[in-house]
Design a protein around this nucleic acid. Structure first.
Length: 438
DNA sequence: GCACAACTAAACATTT
DNA sequence: AAAATGTTTAGTTGTG
């Protein structure tokens, strides 16, 4: 009999709600978006849903998610419109402050989120101010965003821990011994895996036609089928192409995704003292043909089974060896925490800590989160400082720009549609009220 | 039927 | 000692 893993929902720890997720306004400042903004702003036309094909590249899923809105039911009018557009026009308000959107979508509580545990963990960590969270906080974040887990069997926590341990996307960072803030370690995302996680996150719930399911299936159902399945326990209640049912889940996912996408604009985090590359990972990942993801292909976790869960005993042993030996020699993350408010470490230390990619093939430029050199900086490994930051700096950020533009365009497009729908809805409501008065 | 990814359960060890 | 955390193994399910 194993340890009691369960933790009552009441025991939920405080969520890391203090974090501010940077909005478009910040990205706007990066210089690459204005064109996209301008391009998207005036045209809030609905996407021709018929033109949507199955082949998804980049952020096309966002357009597809807007297709959903063409079937927007008036029943959803209660949902507040939290539009990125609003954020741009009134930049005081953080666009995706969690507390602003989580409640209206509690209706998704009964549905299992369409994300794998890896992605949930990833989102949780990315939402944290310091990109590092203890397990407990990860639980809390997931519980907070996906109340489904509040009532789900407690085994999911085991799954979370299992994922953290087994999934090489996640790194364990020892806490400072001097400051005991609780049990266990902090968990971070290995920056090398951010690109693939990002891709997976982008695609996950929206990639094909909208598909929703609960328990028995896996998130792959989302990716690979275009049929709506509604489960109750292990019973398939409904199977159809009707996609309106789980809009809450989809919208929530959309917003979470946007949060993660646009957390790019956050100040860089000086995690270089906390994170350490897992050399074994790097080798495996960058080895020609090993883990390189085909362009536009997704997996959260790549098509290479060993990329996500590395079940190879030898490499796992190696990885643990690295993480345990090297991480312990680093400054604690608690110390890093102290640095964060001062932040703005944008290259404050020059090139130091930049991830030299001379021996890697990791496409950071493909990572909206890891751009600006933050992520590579975060994962600096003193053992691989060949020419610090050389590649990162000399390589044009064109791809990042393109992706950001596309993301911005898509979001603004979505925002415009929502705005239009909002006015449509109010118009209809007004008309209804007038008719009733008559 | 097979391989794979993801999930789940469980056992056990370690840490607080 | 209990609970939380972390690691590992094994089994199941859904998909291509």
């Amino acid at each position: 009999m194993g340890p009691v893993i369960g933790m009552t929902p009441e025991k939920r720890a405080e969520t890391p709600g203090a974090e501010k997720v940077a909005g478009l306004s910040q990205i706007y400042k990066m210089g690459s978006l204005p064109e996209a903004v301008d391009a998207a702003r005036p045209k809030a036309t609905l996407v021709d849903s018929e033109s949507a094909d199955d082949e998804l590249t980049n952020l096309n899923w966002l357009h597809e998610s807007t297709n959903l809105l063409t079937n927007f039911s008036l029943g959803s009018e209660g949902l507040p419109i939290v539009s990125p557009l609003y954020d741009i026009e009134g930049d005081d308000v953080p666009p995706f402050e969690p507390s602003r959107y989580q409640d209206p979508e509690k209706k998704s509580a009964t549905s299992k989120p369409p994300y794998s545990f890896s992605l949930l963990i990833y989102m949780a960590i990315e939402h944290s101010p310091n990109k590092c969270l203890p397990v407990k906080e990860i639980y809390s974040w997931i519980l907070d965003r996906f109340p489904y887990f509040a009532t789900a069997p407690t085994g999911w926590k085991n799954s979370v821990r299992h994922n953290l341990s087994l999934n090489k996307c996640f790194q364990k960072v020892e806490r400072s011994h001097g400051k005991v803030n609780g049990k266990g370690s902090l968990w971070c995302v290995d920056p090398e895996y951010k690109p693939s996680l990002m891709r997976a996150l982008k695609k996950q719930p929206f990639s094909s036609t909208l598909t929703v399911y609960t328990p028995p299936a896996s998130p792959r159902s989302y990716k690979k089928t275009s049929v709506l399945r509604v489960w109750k326990g292990k019973t398939l209640l409904k199977r159809s192409s009707d996609t309106s049912l789980e809009q809450g889940v989809l919208e929530q996912g959309s917003k979470l995704l946007m949060e993660v996408l646009f957390s790019t604009g956050e100040k860089p985090l000086p995690l270089k003292t906390a994170l350490q590359k897992k050399r074994s990972y790097s080798n495996a990942f960058t080895h020609p043909g090993a883990a390189r993801l085909p362009e536009g292909d997704s997996p959260a976790t790549s098509t290479d089974p060993k990329e996500d869960h590395n079940y190879s005993a030898s490499s796992m042993a190696a990885q643990r060896c690295v993480s345990r030996s090297s991480v312990s020699s680093l400054s604690s993350v608690d110390e890093v925490y102290e640095l964060i408010p001062k932040s703005s470490h944008v290259g404050s230390d020059g090139s130091e800590g930049f991830h030299s990619e001379e021996d890697t093939d990791v496409d950071y430029e493909d990572d909206p989160l890891g751009d600006s050199g933050y992520a590579p900086q975060a994962c600096a490994d003193t053992s691989r400082k060949g020419q610090p930051g050389k590649k990162m700096r000399t390589q044009p950020c064109q791809e990042i720009d393109e992706e950001l533009k596309e993301a911005a365009g898509s979001l603004l497009h979505l925002a415009g549609i929502r705005t239009c729908l909002g006015s449509l809805i109010s118009t209809v409501k007004t008309q209804n009220q007038k008719q009733r008065k008559k």
